[in-house]
Computed example of a mutant assay.
Amino acid sequence: MKTLHILNGDATLFVFKQTKIEGDILVWREILADGPVSKTNLWELRSDWISKTFGENPANYQQKVITEAEKLNHLDKYDEVTLWFEYDLTCQINLIYILSAINYRKDNSISLICPETIEGMPNFRGLGELNPMQLKKLISQKVKLQKADLELANKAWDLYIENDVEQIKDFLTQDFRNLPLLKKALKAHLLRFPNPSTQLNHIEELLLILSNSGISSKAELYNAFWAQENIYGLTDLQLDHILTRLKERKLITKELF
Score class of each variant (00 low, 15 high):
60 N>I: 06
63 Q>I: 00
54 F>Y: 13
137 K>N: 14
116 E>N: 09
85 F>L: 00
86 E>A: 05
132 P>F: 13
68 E>G: 04
110 I>N: 08
145 L>E: 04
106 K>Q: 10
51 S>P: 14
109 S>R: 12
45 L>T: 06
52 K>R: 11
63 Q>L: 02
57 N>K: 06
131 N>I: 08
45 L>R: 02
67 T>M: 04
55 G>D: 02
76 D>K: 11
137 K>F: 10
65 V>T: 13
80 E>A: 10
99 L>D: 05
89 L>W: 14
111 S>V: 00
126 G>W: 05
157 W>N: 02
75 L>P: 11
103 N>G: 13
114 C>L: 10
126 G>C: 05
132 P>K: 14
41 N>P: 05
80 E>R: 11
84 W>N: 01
157 W>R: 02
58 P>A: 03
46 R>V: 01
83 L>H: 06
94 N>H: 01
96 I>G: 06
160 Y>Q: 09
160 Y>F: 15
160 Y>N: 08
147 K>C: 12
70 E>P: 11
116 E>V: 05
43 W>Y: 08
139 I>T: 14
94 N>E: 01
136 K>E: 01
113 I>W: 11
46 R>S: 02
93 I>E: 09
154 N>F: 09
128 G>N: 03
102 I>M: 15
67 T>K: 04
117 T>M: 04
124 F>Q: 08
106 K>H: 11
126 G>E: 02
119 E>Q: 15
58 P>W: 00
84 W>H: 03
52 K>T: 02
108 N>R: 12
145 L>D: 05
133 M>T: 14
103 N>I: 11
49 W>P: 06
154 N>W: 07
113 I>V: 12
142 K>D: 08
80 E>W: 01
84 W>S: 01
50 I>N: 08
40 T>P: 09
38 S>Y: 13
77 K>N: 06
40 T>D: 15
73 N>Q: 13
93 I>R: 15
158 D>K: 14
125 R>M: 07
48 D>L: 15
42 L>D: 10
71 K>D: 09
108 N>K: 10
153 A>W: 12
47 S>W: 04
131 N>Y: 11
150 L>T: 05
100 S>W: 01
88 D>W: 09
45 L>K: 03
142 K>Q: 15
101 A>M: 15
156 A>V: 05
73 N>I: 02
39 K>S: 14
110 I>Y: 15
87 Y>S: 15
131 N>K: 13
92 Q>D: 03
52 K>Y: 00
143 V>A: 12
51 S>I: 09
68 E>M: 02
113 I>P: 08
88 D>G: 06
84 W>R: 02
48 D>N: 15
147 K>P: 11
145 L>N: 08
156 A>S: 12
118 I>Q: 00
159 L>G: 14
152 L>I: 09
39 K>R: 10
95 L>A: 03
125 R>E: 03
156 A>D: 07
85 F>K: 01
60 N>A: 11
66 I>P: 09
70 E>Y: 12
46 R>W: 07
70 E>C: 12
150 L>C: 08
84 W>G: 00
158 D>T: 12
42 L>Y: 13
140 S>P: 02
99 L>W: 09
152 L>G: 07
100 S>Q: 07
140 S>F: 10
160 Y>L: 07
63 Q>M: 02
41 N>R: 14
89 L>A: 11
52 K>M: 01
46 R>P: 04
145 L>K: 10
75 L>F: 04
120 G>K: 00
130 L>W: 03
83 L>C: 05
113 I>N: 08
45 L>F: 06
128 G>H: 01
106 K>T: 09
127 L>T: 04
